[in-house]
Design a protein around this nucleic acid. Structure first.
Length: 282
DNA sequence: AACCCAATCAACCGCGCGAGC
DNA sequence: TGCTCGCGCGGTTGATTGGGT
């Protein structure tokens, strides 16, 4: 039997969007908000597939998108996050406690997770950027972009490294979503439904700058932690459930990337991540 | 000026997942 | 419990652009 097509393909436009189509879509979403993508094209008078409308809005028309080149900070963050979440699985040592429940709307998968840490960037944009720029950058550094391990000299780069150093079997390999659930005990709730503001700024304040306009060290909200939900009282928290910030593991120090601070007893703990092995790079 | 090729990125496609019935 | 539907993700395609010859 099979799935019904997502739209009536015979009567939909394909290819590049025209200005008029963009205007129609923007106007409709401003008036009615996002959602109901399947019925949106008809309601908005667009001869487009609902998926196509969603994609166009998400990746190009949203008012809070940041355009322009990626910064070095963004580059490095993408690399670090990819090294942790890449290849659709993340390795976690055995943990006695199951991962905390987590907001599924906020925790998605690889590219959207990374996009979630880069305000104003979309998963599609990051994915493209990864494939076109960062892969090459890592290869130039002698790092396999898939495994984040050093490439072996000689032979054919990636293939050689994969042959020689297949991914180490890890204690637990979980799909990205489950891994994310374990990693990201989100320190702030998912953003409220974005009010579709007619002002041009429309939420752009979340795009890496503070209200004063100064850059917020890539406003990464990198409070990646494992532990109780933010509502849990910080005091009295048993050691086994203490929030674990991963920004330290990601290489950030002294609150570079998040507002948390290493306590006086030492750096952040990162209980749920195996420290890098010798010779393993992020 | 014309052609070729690589890089870039918007958009498409197929599929998986979760919610609702 | 199984099915359908809608959403969203990752992989891929194809048009466009820019640099080199």
């Amino acid at each position: 039997m099979g799935r019904s097509p997502c739209c009536e393909k015979a009567h939909t436009n394909k290819g590049a969007w025209t200005k008029e189509e963009d205007q129609r879509l923007i106007a409709y979403i401003r008036a009615h908000g996002e959602g109901c993508w399947r019925s949106l094209p008809k309601a908005a008078g667009l001869l487009r597939c609902g998926k196509s409308c969603r994609l166009r809005w998400m990746n190009y028309l949203r008012p809070d998108l940041k355009r322009g080149n990626f910064t070095d900070d963004e580059d490095e963050l993408i690399i670090r996050l990819h090294s942790l979440l890449g290849n659709k699985s993340v390795s976690l040592p055995p943990s006695p406690a199951p991962p905390p429940p987590i907001d599924g709307a906020f925790i998605n998968s690889l590219w959207s997770l990374i996009a979630g840490q880069l305000p104003g960037r979309t998963d599609n944009e990051i994915k493209n950027y990864w494939n076109t720029h960062i892969k090459r950058k890592l290869l130039a550094r002698g790092i396999d972009p898939q495994t984040h391990r050093p490439l072996l000299s000689g032979g054919d780069g990636i293939a050689a490294s994969n042959k020689a150093a297949p991914p180490t079997p890890h204690p637990i390999s979980v799909p990205a979503k489950a891994a994310a659930a374990a990693i990201f005990a989100v320190a702030k709730p998912p953003p409220p439904p974005r009010p579709v503001d007619s002002s041009d700024d429309g939420g752009r304040s979340s795009s890496g700058t503070t209200s004063t306009g100064e850059p917020r060290c890539p406003d990464l909200n990198l409070e990646l932690s494992v532990g109780p939900t933010p509502s849990s009282p910080p005091a009295e928290t048993p050691t086994s459930a203490r929030p674990v910030c991963l920004c330290y593991h990601l290489g950030f120090r002294g609150g570079e990337a998040c507002s948390c601070q290493a306590d006086s007893k030492g750096p952040h703990e990162f209980r749920y991540f195996r420290p890098l092995e010798q010779g393993q790079y992020i």
